[in-house]
Simulated scan of single mutants.
Amino acid sequence: MTENNREDGFIEYLQIKTVQPTPDYASCTAYLQRQALDAGFEFRAIDIILNSHTDVVPVFEASWTHPPFGAHRDMKIVGQAYLEAMRQLKGAVRRTVHAVFVPDEEIGGHDGMAKFVESAEFRQLNAGFALDEGMANPNEALRVFYGERAPCWIRFVARGNTGHGSQFIEDTAAEKLLPVIEHMMTFRSEQLQVFRRPRADGSPSRWATASVGFDIRMTPTLDYLRFRRSMEQLAAEHSVEIEFVQFWDDNTMTDTSAESGFWVAFERVLEARQVPFAREIFPAATDSRYLRRAGVPALGVTPLVNAPILLHDHNEYVTEKQFVDAIGFYTDVVSALANA
């Protein structure tokens, strides 16, 4: 494939509107199948997984300088760079490399990677290692994510006395929530996370129920089940109900020591390319958590350095040079992993 053709392919991929909540997965699937056929790839492989997701978050076009689907703005660089690297490596690797394009990552991956890792097709892959998306870095170091903060969405619901707004009603729903909120704010401060303080809805003397929600991203060094029990105890102590809207119970991290042959192969590529890097915990949740729980070590890497962090932002973009550089990066990395 010529340089112009590969860039045209990237542009075509960007233009497919896989935006939530109504992504055009049919057109996306047709494009990916055509790419695989053109390159002579098989649709089923084993050993190494190159994972990326095809959906994107909603956009507000009025806030964009250029049309968001005009092929100038997006983060599909990872998936397309995988394809171009595989074209160059066809027949030159010992292991089979499987490019996986999953839906619905932006809304939790429950109907995407979560179901895929439970399928017979996944079990047949015999996957031993995976690459997934990472994050840009305004500095020169490549960010390599070996774990991530797991989602824990909690809703506390209090029920209390009600009455006319002119009266001082005791034991109200909102009053019950106040110590819960204070506890959560203390925990948040301890975790050095700065967010806006949530407030209970409604007047303390008018409403019979009040609720407050918290979006918590649990670091993998935390005992998730113990933390859940502490939240349940907090609710019981203050006579409020608790609902775990979303909760993740696995904190598996990828081995980045000399004991891991795949990590050693990956690190040697960075050293050969003279790329400084930083091992990090991803600040949010990605599809890597499903792979790690399924027993497949995964690293989250997006080769965008000296680049602003624009994911989910207005005017998100990648340059042509960044795309070309990403192809070279993944060609070297995939070659090393697939021949390790």
Rank of each mutant, 00 (worst) to 15 (best):
P276W: 07
R292S: 00
F262Q: 01
A26F: 07
G202A: 04
R94K: 15
F41W: 07
R73E: 14
A136V: 10
V324F: 09
A338W: 06
T29G: 04
A150V: 01
F244L: 12
G134H: 04
I46W: 03
A127V: 02
L310A: 07
Q167N: 06
Q20H: 12
N139G: 11
T252N: 09
S63Q: 12
A39D: 08
G91S: 10
T219N: 15
L37D: 14
V56T: 15
E7T: 09
K176Q: 12
R292T: 05
V117R: 05
V97M: 07
S189F: 09
F129L: 06
H110P: 03
E140L: 01
Q88V: 04
V275S: 00
T65K: 12
R188Q: 15
V59L: 09
E182H: 06
L37A: 14
T221A: 12
M184C: 14
L125D: 02
S166A: 15
E121A: 14
L178R: 04
R292W: 11
T2D: 15
G202F: 10
D132G: 05
R292A: 03
L337F: 07
N315C: 05
E121S: 08
T219M: 08
L32R: 06
F247A: 06
S335N: 14
R44F: 14
A236G: 00
S211C: 05
S166M: 05
V324E: 04
D332H: 10
Q80K: 08
N4E: 15
T219C: 03
S119Y: 08
A258N: 11
W64G: 01
R73C: 14
V324R: 10
V318W: 06
A307Q: 08
A173K: 10
P204L: 04
T331C: 05
P276L: 05
S257K: 06
R188C: 14
F69W: 02
T331N: 06
H110I: 11
V264P: 02
N126A: 03
R228A: 10
I16Y: 04
I216L: 15
E7K: 13
K76A: 02
E316I: 04
E7S: 00
M231Y: 00
G112Q: 09
I169V: 15
E12P: 04
S63Y: 08
F168Q: 11
L337A: 07
V93Y: 01
A30W: 01
Q20I: 11
D132R: 00
V19Q: 11
E267Q: 15
